Simulated scan of single mutants.
Amino acid sequence: MARPTPELIYALRQTASNLQHGAPYQWGHMGGCNCGNLAQELTKLDKDQIHRYAMQRHGDWNEQAEDYCETSQMPIDLLINELLNAGLMLEDLKHLERLDDRAVLLRFPVGQRFLKHNVREDVIAYMNAWAELLEEQLLEKITLPAMYVLELA
């Protein structure tokens, strides 16, 4: 599961909002799919740039994650490296593209856990649920210093 970072939580929420408000969505397009839309938010590249980078190697986001090489200078690997630096793990890319991370799905009522990976509304719901999960994890890690009461003598 991703490292809960403020940047990633914000990007998930912003991507969901963008999709809700009509951002281009096309599951078969590497720059306009689930991962592609999140990548747009995290990298500030447009969907066509992301798609061009991905097409320099074969496969969908699942295969791109499998073939990722951190020392490669291929544009898609540099892009994936930015996503990883924001807190994502390679497995998150695979789960996001299929909307199938168990921890995220458990946040939905039992009858609503069967999300369709290529349906805009399901992608929006998944990203919002994932952002909520990561925010809860982030807040659990925050420890405020104990307050000391000074006694006056």
Rank of each mutant, 00 (worst) to 15 (best):
P4G: 02
L8D: 00
L8S: 00
L8N: 00
I9G: 01
A11L: 02
L12N: 01
L12S: 02
Q14S: 09
T15V: 04
S17H: 15
S17E: 10
S17K: 10
N18G: 12
Q20T: 12
A23Q: 12
A23C: 07
A23E: 08
Y25A: 05
W27Q: 10
G28D: 15
M30R: 11
G31T: 05
C33E: 00
C33H: 01
N34Y: 04
G36Y: 03
A39G: 03
A39L: 06
Q40D: 03
K44D: 11
K44E: 15
L45Y: 10
K47W: 15
Y53W: 15
Y53I: 10
A54W: 02
M55N: 10
M55I: 12
R57K: 08
H58P: 13
G59S: 07
D60W: 07
W61C: 03
W61S: 00
N62C: 08
E63N: 09
Q64Y: 06
A65N: 00
E66Q: 09
D67Y: 13
Y68Q: 01
C69D: 15
T71N: 10
S72T: 02
S72P: 02
M74D: 12
M74S: 08
P75D: 07
I76G: 00
I76H: 00
I76C: 01
L78P: 07
L78S: 10
L78G: 08
L79F: 02
I80C: 02
I80D: 00
E82K: 09
L84V: 04
L84D: 03
A86K: 02
G87R: 03
L88N: 02
M89W: 09
D92T: 05
H95E: 10
E97L: 04
E97G: 12
L99C: 07
D100C: 09
V104A: 05
V104I: 10
L106R: 11
R107Q: 11
V110W: 15
V110S: 13
K116N: 14
R120T: 07
R120W: 04
E121K: 11
V123L: 11
M127Y: 14
M127R: 06
W130I: 05
A131S: 05
A131N: 01
L134P: 01
L134G: 00
E136L: 10
E136S: 13
Q137E: 13
Q137R: 14
L138W: 10
E140L: 10
K141Q: 11
T143F: 13
V149F: 11
L150N: 14
L152G: 15
A153Y: 14
